[in-house]
Nucleic acid binder design. Structure first.
Length: 416
RNA sequence: GGACAAGUGGGUGAGUGGCUGAAACCACAUCCCUGCUAAGGAUGCGUAGGGGUAACCCUACCGAGAGUUCGAAUCUCUCCUUGUCCA
């Protein structure tokens, strides 16, 4: 959630920044107005309540002194009705405000480039050179089927389209990649955490998936439980409502989970293969820092993800997302795109975001800054999406006969 | 799944209707004192929101929500969590 105080105080600059991200000015003006109205309603209610409390105190004194209370009671009773009304108004205002505020995205950082969509993202650098082939490189689904690694039909049989089943070396490679990535992250100081794959509504509100993106989530029927779309949700919400001692910061976590996404609105995109699945494996990084340290942490996380690809000898590039492509909760995002020879293009394999205090405000994650409690900054990033890493390995290391060379760093994990 | 019990501030823990935002102790912070030795003393110490230049004042919060009452940590109901016993 954005800082309503800041919006109130500095409407011009906050709204200008949000307009860059495509937020309607009228909506922001409405938000500001609602905020004022709520404040008014609160002051009104609290004044009445204070009056009521004072009278109730008198009551005690009257009783002790044996005085007649009927006149006082009449006054108190009358006030009660007024209070109830004032409280109702306050509640309605509160609800109206929240409905708007929870749907406003994060304020983009000043150095985020303007743009409409992914075409306007800005490349930071390329790492490693894409391989050249003296034959026509195949796409991963062809290689996956030819090697017997992945069966897409079996996924359909069990669940439906956009599910797949891995076999033999395909399944082993998944497991090897997860282990390799977790160990890699651990070496960089990230504590491995194993979390539930189901979370409640509060957690999803905390990280910003709800209320706005309910259609992308799988919900358990009749229960307040959702399948997680990313480990970012449970990892970040581990600290929901917590006041973290200053010396515990920064907190660096890594975790592997399956991720579940309905992919609503993605119809027709990447329907073949395993680029876009309803269920996929991902190793995630989540960090919690003081505000002044989050930029440094952000760079560190980008490097961590990039270095994993380098260790796997996979060519990739780093791009800064433009305002139009930036996610709901992110102030800044760097995507890592891996080279896919079969598709002859770079495709997203990791996304690292600094949400600043956007999630912290929603999830009430704070730290003690000397005497005061301050909101922390939360960051998250994939390191990496396992399925897409498999795709990259297949396409980059394919031989003319369809065989695939396994990257050396994975050999120990595969008993090779 | 059933029965019973419990859920209070960083921790332990008191508190069964008003003088309790909450005793006491511990921890913590600042200051003071001191050669009789892991000492003593003073003060401070929850969170969120709002008002005031400020001293300060107001509102809410004792697992969550609803209710009774002029007034609830304290009574009632529902839910959640934990513990113990049973299946």
């Amino acid at each position: 959630m954005i800082d309503l105080k800041l919006l109130q105080k500095d409407f011009e600059s906050v709204s200008a920044k949000l307009i860059r991200k495509g937020v309607d000015l009228a909506l922001l003006e409405q938000l500001k107005e609602k905020n004022e109205e709520l404040k008014q309603a609160k002051v009104n209610f609290e004044t009445l309540q204070a009056h009521q409390n004072a009278m109730s105190k008198e009551f005690g004194i009257y009783k002790r002194e044996g005085k007649d209370i009927s006149e006082l009671k009449a006054r108190v009773d009358a006030n009660k009705i007024v209070i109830a009304e004032a409280l109702d108004i306050q509640r309605i205002k509160q609800e109206e405000l929240e409905n708007i505020a929870m749907a406003i995205p994060n304020i983009p950082d000043d150095d985020v480039p303007d743009g409409e969509d992914e075409d306007d993202n800005v490349e930071i650098k390329k790492v490693l050179t894409p391989p050249s082939f003296d034959f026509e490189p195949k796409e991963h689904w062809e290689l996956a089927e030819q090697n017997g690694w992945i069966d897409f039909e079996d996924g359909v049989k069990l669940a439906g389209s956009r599910f797949s089943v891995s076999y033999g070396m395909g399944a082993k490679l998944e497991r090897a990649l997860i282990n390799f990535m977790l160990n890699f992250n651990a070496q960089r100081g990230y504590t491995e955490v194993s979390v539930p794959h189901l979370v409640n509504k509060r957690a999803l509100e905390g990280t910003g998936q709800l209320p706005k993106f309910a259609d992308d989530l799988y919900k358990m029927q009749g229960l307040d439980l959702y399948l997680i779309p990313t480990a970012e949700v449970p990892l970040t919400n581990l600290f929901q409502d917590e006041i973290i001692p200053e010396d515990k910061l920064p907190i660096k976590m890594t975790g592997y989970t399956s991720c579940f996404r309905k992919e609503a609105g993605a119809a027709g995109r990447d329907t073949r293969g395993m680029i876009r699945q309803h269920q996929f494996h991902k190793v995630e990084l989540v960090s919690i820092t003081k505000p002044q340290e989050s930029d440094k942490m952000f760079d560190e996380m980008v490097s961590c993800a990039s270095d994993i690809l380098t260790a796997l000898k996979l060519p990739h590039r780093l791009v800064t997302l433009c305002t139009g492509d930036l996610g709901f909760g992110a102030a800044k995002t760097v995507d890592i795109e891996v080279w896919l020879p079969g598709q002859n293009c770079y495709r997203e394999i990791s996304s690292i975001s600094n949400t600043r205090d956007f999630q912290a405000r929603r999830a009430k994650i704070r730290y003690k800054d000397g005497k005061k409690n301050n909101l922390v900054n939360t960051l998250n990033g994939s390191s990496l999406a396992v399925g897409r890493t498999m795709v990259a390995i297949m396409e980059n290391f394919q031989q003319e006969n369809g065989d695939i060379k396994i990257p050396e760093v994975l050999h120990p994990y595969l008993g090779m």
